[in-house]
Simulated assay, not measured.
Amino acid sequence: MPALSSRPDPDSPLGKLMATLPQGGRVEWIGLRPARETAMIEVDAVEATAGAGLAGDRYKSGSGKRGITLIQAEHLPVIAALSGHAQVAPATLRRNLVVSGIPLVALKGRRFRIGELVLEGTESCDPCSRMEEALGAGGFNAMRGHGGLCARIVEGGTLRLGDTVQAL
């Protein structure tokens, strides 16, 4: 399997800085996309399958590198401000999880635990052209750099609201 990112040597000064996180995070919201261009379904808990995705989500099958998508709770007000809205509902952005307290960018290319699950950050979750429709003109650009993270499910289980997020 090819490297997920060009991380520095873990023993180098930069490698040590990149591995240090001040705190864990928390799952604030869970949503499922049952089909393309349909409303998301908000849930309190969902089953996650290793190498696949979340039960009831349209990305449940396939390569698994986009088995689950996450967005930073702290970025929601930024996206709202940049798109001219007072607030943006998580379902509008079509990510599976809203996570607070931990910088998702620091989890790209590494494994992390959310409750029972072990995930591996695979790539940035860049916005799609549908954000123009969802947020209005400029919505795509409002989300650039704030789209979140795609992850592969390494170990499945039940994912619940309030689960902690910890880098491994």
Rank of each mutant, 00 (worst) to 15 (best):
K65I: 13
D57R: 10
S61C: 02
L76W: 00
V88F: 05
G51N: 10
K60N: 10
P90C: 03
R95P: 00
S100Q: 11
C125W: 04
E116P: 03
L70A: 12
M40Y: 05
E74Q: 03
S124F: 02
I114C: 12
A89I: 04
A55F: 04
L54K: 09
R66I: 03
P103Y: 01
L93S: 12
H85K: 14
G62Q: 14
C125E: 04
P77I: 00
S63A: 14
P90A: 02
A81F: 01
M40G: 15
L82W: 01
R95D: 04
R95F: 03
R111S: 12
A91L: 03
S61P: 01
A89T: 12
L82Q: 14
V88M: 09
P103T: 06
E42F: 00
A52G: 10
V98W: 06
L117K: 07
V105H: 08
M40K: 08
A106E: 12
E42Y: 01
D126K: 06
G51E: 12
G121I: 03
L119G: 11
A52T: 06
L117A: 08
I41H: 04
I41D: 01
V43A: 14
G101C: 11
Q72K: 00
A55Y: 05
R66C: 08
S83T: 06
G53F: 04
P127E: 11
R94H: 09
I79E: 03
M40C: 14
A73K: 13
A80N: 03
F112G: 11
S63W: 09
G51H: 08
A80D: 00
R94D: 10
E74R: 04
I71A: 07
A106K: 12
G115R: 06
V99T: 08
H85I: 02
T69E: 11
K65H: 14
N96V: 06
R66W: 11
H75N: 12
S63K: 13
L117F: 05
R111Y: 02
M40E: 15
G115A: 08
M40R: 05
L117I: 04
R66Y: 13
G56R: 10
E120I: 04
T49Q: 13
L76G: 00
P90R: 02
A52C: 08
V99K: 09
Q72N: 00
I68L: 08
G67D: 09
R110P: 06
S83F: 01
V98F: 06
L104G: 03
G56D: 10
I41E: 15
R58P: 12
T92Y: 02
R58T: 11
D44F: 02
Q72R: 00
L76E: 00
V99W: 04
R95C: 02
L119D: 13
F112V: 05
V99H: 07
I79D: 07
E47A: 11
A73R: 12
A55V: 12
L93A: 08
R95N: 11
E123Q: 15
A91F: 01
E74C: 02
G56L: 06
P103C: 03
L54C: 09
P90F: 01
A106D: 15
I68V: 15
R94Q: 12
L54D: 10
S63M: 05
A91H: 11
V88E: 09
G101F: 05
T122E: 13
I102P: 09
F112K: 05
V78T: 15
